Amino acid sequence: MLKLNWDNITILVVDDNTFMRNLVVSTLRMLGISNIVARSSATAAIEALSESRRNPVSAGFATIDIILSDFVMEEVDGALFLRWIRTSKQAPDRFVPFVMVSGAADQQIVEAARDAGVSEFLAKPFSAKSLGDRIVEVIKNPRQYVLAPGYFGPDRRRQDRPTSWSYADDYSQPEKNRRVTEASQIQVVHARSNIRTLRDDVRAIYFRPANRLRDKLGPNALRGQIDFDPLVIQAAENRIQEMVGDYAVWVKNYLDTMARSYKALVKQEEEPKQHIVNINQIAHELRGQGGIFDYPLITSFGKSLYDATLDTRGKVTDNRLKLIEAHIDALRVVFNKQVRGDGGKVGAELLQDIERAVRKYSEAPSAGPI
């Protein structure tokens, strides 16, 4: 393969989970990307980016080429961080490619990221290849940026074709084209155009900046295929598997923390909401991590527990406690017995146990205070 100058690319990694942040950084280094800025929160990332605009020497970097950010974070989440990037006057580059990383890859989450101006979405669990693919995508196929009422970011349409109403969508306007902006109402601004002013009569502006990331990769990026060497990808995958031992330590800590929160809920000695939130956040991390290390059952049980604890305001009933306990017990079995892959007979029995627990103990969410 042609040599590409990956050392010219600087990536910002933002994740409040130390293990996942280190995993992403380690995988990027294995892919040949050495210029990495890592921050433990969106707040810290915003401070660093703001400082880089004022004083690059003090910040330790001048330009961020790609941002990889977790979605679920305390204080400032990934969506708010992305909105700051796209709309704040303090943001050094509103056009920077932004890849959202999350174990919560539900449609609602993906759409929230899209509407905030995301470039690509990477669902956990991820592989070295899927991570590399997202980076290659924002370089090979950069989308135009759209400025329209209520939105600025990469074009949310992947295909250049109109979307029509169906009769079911709106019976009063059958088959009406939902794209109401005409070509005459759009102003296109190219990278090398001489346009210095924006028209007042337009409904949308399309920005088509130069592909500076491809240019940074060097002349070979213009002549050949932009991609990571398959041997490098395999080496990165091997490195991920080598970290399984470290992951086992993290899983034990997660389970111990959840068990403490569960016991506090049983004793009813403290404010229960924070313990439900704590269990929910750990479940979210587990749903995104297990599959990376060939523990898909941890991902499955983590997702189920995450769904079961989404309502943080609901009453802590006996049934709810039994449902949480069933999930923690199942996760401990997977961890203690090192149940990899689908787990065979043991895995099937555990899945059935959780399904029965969900059916038996699930309750309608309550809107009342706890």
Rank of each mutant, 00 (worst) to 15 (best):
L122D: 14
N238C: 04
R134K: 15
N35M: 00
Y171G: 01
V37R: 03
R39I: 07
I186F: 07
D65N: 14
I11E: 04
R340K: 15
G344I: 05
T257D: 15
E75K: 11
V188G: 09
A308W: 09
K315G: 11
A248Q: 13
L198G: 07
L213E: 06
P92L: 00
R114S: 14
Y206H: 11
A123H: 11
H284K: 02
R179I: 12
T10I: 00
N22D: 10
L23F: 09
K140D: 14
A62T: 08
S261T: 03
P209C: 00
L82T: 01
S261K: 03
K267P: 02
D15H: 07
T18V: 00
R199A: 13
R313F: 08
E355K: 14
P154F: 01
V180L: 15
V25M: 07
I279W: 09
D246E: 15
V99E: 01
D115Y: 04
Y262Q: 11
S119T: 15
K337E: 15
D294S: 09
L80E: 11
A367C: 02
F19W: 08
L305T: 08
N194R: 14
R356F: 09
D15M: 02
I195R: 13
Y151P: 08
D115T: 10
N22M: 11
T18D: 14
A123K: 12
A105M: 03
D229T: 03
K176E: 13
L80F: 04
M73K: 01
D329Y: 08
R21Q: 10
S58C: 01
F121C: 05
Q338P: 04
G288N: 01
I226L: 01
K89A: 07
P272S: 10
D353P: 12
S300H: 11
D15R: 03
G290T: 03
K273S: 10
L28I: 00
M20H: 09
G117S: 06
A330H: 10
P369K: 12
P230R: 00
G302R: 01
L147M: 06
L331D: 10
Q268A: 15
L49Q: 08
R143A: 09
V333G: 05
F335S: 12
A210N: 10
P162R: 07
V101D: 02
A210V: 02
K252Y: 07
I66P: 04
A44W: 00
D342E: 14
N238A: 07
D169E: 15
I109W: 01
P125H: 09
V14K: 03
P92Y: 00
V136K: 13
E355T: 09
I33Y: 03
D7R: 06
G224A: 06
G344R: 13
S40A: 10
Y361H: 12
V339N: 08
G150L: 02
F71Q: 13
Y145H: 11
S119W: 08
D7W: 02
R239I: 02
A38N: 01
A104P: 00
N22G: 12
V14W: 05
R340D: 09
V180S: 14
P369L: 13
D160A: 12
K140A: 15
N319G: 13
F126H: 13
A168C: 06
E175P: 06
A42C: 12
V180F: 15
R178N: 11
